[in-house]
Amino acid sequence: MRRELLLAGAGGQGIILAGVILAEAAVRQGLFAAQSQAYGPQSRGGATKAEVVISDREVLYPRVERPDLILLLSREAYGHYGQDVPATARLVVDSSFVSDPAPGVLSVPITETVREKLKRIIVANMAALGLVGALAGVVERSYLEEAVRGRVPRGTAEINLEALGLGYQMAQRFMGVPGC
């Protein structure tokens, strides 16, 4: 089993942190994982990409070569990574930023939902993480929650976990992933 996941958006959206937490949850669960990233020199704005490879065996090549799941959280990221997607990859976009994706692309209002329910879009990355966790289906939610607690700034675990839960709810509501 090897799963390759690609998350991309704009700098400041917390894409890399979401990738790190996903990889850490996989390791906590006893799996192998590698996480890498590509981003520009600026800390806000610019394109940011986090790659996570999860496997039941040692990960030799730690980067995404044939993605199974692509989640795009900005218009620029959609323009860059949303084209020529291999047929085997599942492509999901945040419709809060990508208003007119190509037919067949799964569209979920991640950031809008977080804004509406939690009033703090800074935790939208955790909703994205919940969505990815639910769709990838290889890391159990309890390990993701553990990893969130261990990695987010002190005093923010609850709102981050709420956002994670929203991601699982969206997976069920928009994509019919059962048992979330």
Partner: peptide
Amino acid sequence: EGVGHLRER
């Protein structure tokens, strides 16, 4: 950079 910024098990 590929090793320094890589996180893995």
